[in-house]
């Protein structure tokens, strides 16, 4: 019983400085990293469908390769725009 109380108390003590410090939990560069990561995730999800459709179109008609490729990488612009945040912070 005493041991648990002690452990609890010591953990509160060790967290206290973080909770009380005025620095943000997520720094600017970490926030930018998360932004880019989420943007890349979104682009990946979008490309999944477009890529499947593009492969289907290319399978039917080879001339569609260029157009299919362009449409497939179109969501990639999301990531490029999200990269801007790196330079802003």
């Amino acid at each position: 019983m005493l041991a648990t109380t002690l452990a609890l108390f010591s953990s509160i003590v060790s967290f206290a400085p973080i909770l009380q410090s005025s620095a943000p939990g997520i720094t600017g560069s970490a926030g930018a990293a998360i932004a880019v990561g989420l943007a890349a995730l979104g682009a990946g999800i979008a490309e999944r469908g477009i890529g499947a459709a593009a492969v289907g179109a290319v399978a039917e008609d080879d001339d569609m390769f260029g157009r299919g490729l362009i449409f497939t990488v179109l969501p990639e612009t999301l990531v490029i725009l999200a990269l801007v945040t790196i330079f802003v912070v």
Binding site: G49, A52, A53, A54, V55, G56, A59, E60, M64
Partner: peptide, 13 residues
């Protein structure tokens, strides 16, 4: 279901 792939092939055909 892979709707994207199948519909694009089907539309082409």
């Amino acid at each position: 279901a892979n709707y994207e792939y199948v519909t694009s092939r089907v539309r082409s055909r």
